[in-house]
């Protein structure tokens, strides 16, 4: 097979980000932040918190696939292990929520490292199939392990208090707690992608052989990205465990992995805010169809199929492309005048 990877189809190229107005993204980010700060007063905080957890998981997938070129079908393993470990730490070890989250992320990172040892040498579709199989293996381990309580899962995980006075049992406090972690997570991803490290990762995605010939330790870089992505997915999983106060096998099934894939692809692969837009779309659909009899799974599947067929750039990618088109037309017109 000699088909080459086509970065244009899944990512906004550097060229596009430089031509698009530099101010527009900054204004958008500030608006989004303000919106996030006031949102819980106007909309169900619980749904918004769920949205942020999903956005973090999708940001992890996006980092791995959109920037690292590794299509993971095994995110459930990272999410599930972080949820179980964070839940166990908070409930059985009575640790503070922040410590529980850190332990959960550490567990996810270890799982990511193990996945890397097995799968990192395989690319593209094989990587996807292998991560799917490994995640299923992790699922069975959780099914058998005594500390997960099998089918029941960990129930009544305490949210606890932060710094001794912020009671996370309060839903608004919990909201800002999760928001802080989400902002930190996205900032981290943004800084990483735009760092020299991130540029090498993108270079490896675009042409692994050339990056190798330039002397980069390709497998080392890929393993590092995989572990970082696992940690971020773990952050989402740990927060979700504290939010729902349960950690169950549902977090570890292949459907949990597919949900992450859907959120990331619908939002827009290779874009920074894509995961947020995707999470908003999926949570919104979920909420809209919650009352009706019709299964959300089918709606999600249909949206996803349409997205892959018609809007491969996702919500954010499509909007960005439309903006750029208008901008290109605008500059042409001004030239004519």
């Amino acid at each position: 097979m000699t088909t080459t990877f086509e970065p244009n189809t899944i990512t906004t190229t550097p060229k596009r980000t430089t031509t698009i107005s530099r101010r527009l993204p900054a204004v958008g980010v500030v608006a989004l932040l303000i919106l996030a700060l006031v949102a819980p007063y106007y909309f169900y905080p619980f749904l918004l918190m769920k949205l942020m957890c999903m956005a973090l998981m999708a940001a992890s997938f996006n980092l791995l696939f959109g920037y690292g070129g590794m299509l993971s079908f095994g995110h459930a393993a990272f999410i599930g292990s972080a949820a179980y470990i964070a839940g166990y730490a908070a409930k059985e070890m009575h640790l503070s929520p922040i410590l529980a989250i850190i332990l959960g992320m550490a567990a996810a990172t270890v799982v990511g490292w193990l996945f890397g040892l097995v799968a990192i040498r395989r690319r593209g579709i094989q990587f996807a199939m292998i991560t799917l199989a490994l995640a299923q293996l992790v699922y069975f381990i959780f099914l058998q392990a005594p500390f997960t309580h099998g089918e029941d899962g960990l129930q009544d995980i305490p949210r606890g208090t932060v710094l001794g006075f912020l009671n996370l049992g309060n839903s608004l406090t919990m909201y800002y707690f999760i928001l802080a972690f989400t902002v930190a997570g996205f900032l981290f991803v943004y800084r990483m992608v735009n760092s020299p490290f991130g540029q090498v990762v993108i270079a490896i995605r675009d042409n692994e052989a050339r990056a190798t010939s330039l002397g980069y330790n390709v497998h080392g870089y890929k393993l590092a990205v995989l572990m970082i992505a696992a940690a971020i997915a773990g952050l989402g999983g740990a927060l979700k465990a504290l939010l729902f106060q349960i950690a169950t096998l549902n977090d570890a099934t292949y459907l949990a992995s597919t949900e992450v894939v859907i959120v990331a692809v619908v939002g827009g692969i290779g874009t920074m805010v894509g995961p947020i837009a995707g999470a908003a779309a999926v949570v919104g659909l979920d909420w809209f169809f919650a009352e009706s009899e019709f299964p959300v799974m089918v709606i999600n599947g249909l949206v996803f199929m349409a997205c892959v067929l018609l809007f491969r750039q996702g919500i954010v990618g499509t909007i960005a492309a439309a903006f750029e088109k208008r901008r290109a037309q605008g500059t042409e017109e001004s030239k004519d005048a």
Binding site: T9, I125, G301, F304, R312
Partner: peptide, 11 residues
């Protein structure tokens, strides 16, 4: 990219 075939059939 062939990965879109995988994604489509997933949907």
């Amino acid at each position: 990219d062939h990965m879109y075939g995988l994604l489509f059939t997933l949907g």
